[in-house]
């Protein structure tokens, strides 16, 4: 199975890269303490061993189709990437303009993106975005007395 061969190679690569980065961690050992390197090395060794095992499994199963082959179509991946991009935009908006502006606006955008043209309604979306914003404000500010993102620009 090609996917396992790729995964195995990637796992080995991460293990080796992790070991190289671990070697750069400063340390000064005392008594019998093995220091801050031991555990990351242990994890990296596990990665390399498992990577070899996964690759071997991949070669053994080469040519056998797996359920994973059909995990998502290229169109599904594109839709995932678009939605992740919209979520990233919300994160940036929270950071820049804060909760009060970003949340109602982006809730509406999420609604529009997920509803699609067929289920989209401007008024319902607007009311929904304001209600969600209000409910979150009540929960976090009024009830939990939490501090919310205020925005870098304000």
């Amino acid at each position: 199975m090609t996917r396992d061969i790729f995964l195995g190679a990637f796992t080995i690569l991460v293990g080796v890269a992790g070991a190289l980065l671990t070697a750069q961690v400063p340390s000064s050992t005392f008594t019998d303490d093995p220091g801050p390197h031991l555990f990351p090395y242990f994890a990296c060794a596990m990665l390399v061993l498992c990577g070899c095992g996964i690759m071997a499994t991949g070669f053994r199963r080469a040519g056998v189709a797996s359920q994973a082959e059909g995990f998502m179509s290229p169109g599904d991946w594109a839709r995932s990437a678009i939605l992740m991009g919209v979520f990233a935009l919300y994160g940036i908006a929270l950071w820049l303009v804060g909760f009060h502006l970003a949340t109602p606006t982006m809730t509406f955008v999420f609604y529009a993106a997920i509803a699609g043209r067929r289920k989209f309604s401007l008024w319902r979306g607007a009311i929904y975005a304001l209600l969600t914003y209000g409910a979150l404000y009540l929960l976090f500010v009024w009830f939990l007395r939490s501090y919310l993102p205020e925005g870098l620009l304000f």
Binding site: L7, T11, P40, F42, A43, M46, L47, C50, G53
Partner: peptide, 12 residues
């Protein structure tokens, strides 16, 4: 191996 690799990623 898949399970242990996932665990090793978590440990790292």
């Amino acid at each position: 191996f898949h399970g242990l690799a996932a665990a090793a990623f978590g440990l790292l």
